[in-house]
Design a protein around this nucleic acid. Structure first.
Length: 420
DNA sequence: TCTGGGGTCCTAGGACCC
DNA sequence: TCTGGGGTCCTAGGACCC
């Protein structure tokens, strides 16, 4: 197999580091990274979970994803910083600009992770991959103020990603193909990419506790136990086998679907309130859909009850659309069909089965479509220019609901896939 | 451990067609 | 007319990741 040079760059405690840097730049006297602190949502609006934590807060046993209240019980002096997604996007963009100076093959994998294919360009910056990665790491630290861990492999993205986990913060590690057995096999099975809680449980019941155990298992047995597709993938991963190329960002983002969801401040029991939240979410979803120049053919809604169980309902449209009101109407119908009447804690909308909006299929009875689409675009323009609250639908006035709802602002760079 | 938000992929069952 | 088989589409739900 031909040797390659793949880097995986991972920002250490990304949200927390970025918030800390931002605060320092604006005159803060403490560095959140050096005290027990977390980035977390607002408890009053029931968004209160830990999104990222500092290293000192780890010593209190605080975990990502746990409720803020619980974290405060573990550490009463805990500092809770609200998330600032605009700031995170700026930091992410700045980092990727630096990375692109080293190769044009940069794959933005998530807001805080990127892959670099350095195979053809490494020699321009040095001979030793570790030395070049160290330069990149130090440059990001000096110029942007936050630290990263870089993983290197001579084979593929999977090994580079596993390598970046080996040591942090502010570190460079390798897993070359001849280091798989010594560095990767002793790790607990849960550390393998794509092994979550459910799969871990299954594997342990099969007597597999380390990555090496899985690697040395009969693949047919693993396929039988975990289903063919999943079993093959994990067995390959445990043996360091993975072949996807580093995919640089094209002009049109590769997206399968777009969704937004929100936990509401109070439990919703009335349909008209649910409709308002659905409209507010649709505004965001449809705007994002138009911004990437797609139409959707499937609309789905998702309901989480106050008992925390969830269910979803979806339907294919006869004609693809990017119109806010069409998506909204469809979402309301789906809601009516699905809702069992329980108090609702959270609602979500998702559009999928995307196609280009280059030409819209004109359906016979819809003369006003073009007008409505122009109006949608006009509103998009105003919101991008003056903020999402600059233009309201009248039904939101004094309603207690925001006119637009959705987590991360602007178009984001989430491109998660199990095949890397 | 009682819970945010944004994604992707896979699978199974039912409907429907030939 | 009470019974085969295969293929595709649609939908719900599970599992996983950051």
């Amino acid at each position: 197999m031909k040797d390659r040079v793949i880097f995986h760059v991972d920002v250490n405690s990304a949200f927390l580091s970025w918030s800390a840097v931002h605060a320092l730049q604006h005159g803060a006297s403490v560095d959140f990274r050096e005290i027990p602190s977390v980035v977390g949502g607002n408890q009053a609006t029931r968004h209160g979970i830990v999104l990222a934590k500092s290293i000192p807060s780890k010593e209190y046993g605080i975990k990502t994803g746990e409720p803020i209240i619980q974290a405060k019980q573990k550490c009463p002096g805990l500092v809770v910083v609200p998330p600032d997604y605009y700031c995170y996007e700026r930091c992410s963009r700045a980092m990727n600009e630096i990375l692109r100076e080293y190769t044009d093959k940069v794959q933005i994998f998530s807001i805080d992770e990127s892959f670099l294919d350095m195979t053809d360009t490494l020699h321009l910056f040095g001979n030793d991959p570790v030395e070049v990665a160290t330069k990149i790491k130090d440059r990001i630290k000096n110029e942007l103020g936050f630290t990263v861990s870089i993983g290197i492999s001579d084979r593929n993205k999977l090994l580079a990603k596993m390598a970046s986990e080996l040591k942090k913060p502010d570190a460079v590690s390798t897993i070359y193909h001849n280091e798989i057995q010594s560095k990767m096999w002793p790790l607990p099975i849960r550390d393998l990419y794509m092994v979550g809680r459910a799969t871990e449980k299954k594997l342990i019941s099969m007597g597999i506790t380390t990555i090496g155990d899985l690697a040395n298992m009969d693949i047919e047995f693993v396929k039988y136990k975990l289903k063919p597709a999943w079993g093959t993938m994990l067995w390959n991963f445990s043996n360091g086998i993975e072949e996807s190329p580093v995919k640089p960002e094209g002009s049109i983002p590769y997206i399968k679907g777009i969704g937004n969801s929100t936990t509401i401040k109070f439990d919703i029991t009335e349909k008209k309130d649910a409709y308002k939240v659905l409209l507010s979410l649709t505004e965001m979803v449809a705007m994002r859909l138009r911004s990437v120049k797609y139409c959707c053919s499937v609309v789905s809604i998702w309901i989480r009850t106050n008992e925390l169980s969830g269910y979803s309902h979806q339907k294919k449209l006869y004609v693809p659309t990017d119109e806010t009101m069409k998506i909204y109407k469809s979402a309301c119908r789906l809601f009516d069909e699905a809702w069992q009447g329980e108090p609702i804690r959270a609602l979500g909308i998702r559009v999928s089965d995307l196609c280009s909006n280059d030409f819209v299929q004109l359906s016979l009875f819809e003369n006003y479509s073009e007008k409505k689409r122009k109006l949608d675009r006009l509103v998009d323009g105003l919101r991008i220019e003056y903020g999402s609250h600059s233009i309201y639908r009248s039904c939101f006035l004094h309603s207690g609901f925001p006119p637009v709802t959705g987590g991360i602002s602007e178009e984001n760079n989430f491109v998660m896939t199990s095949i890397l």
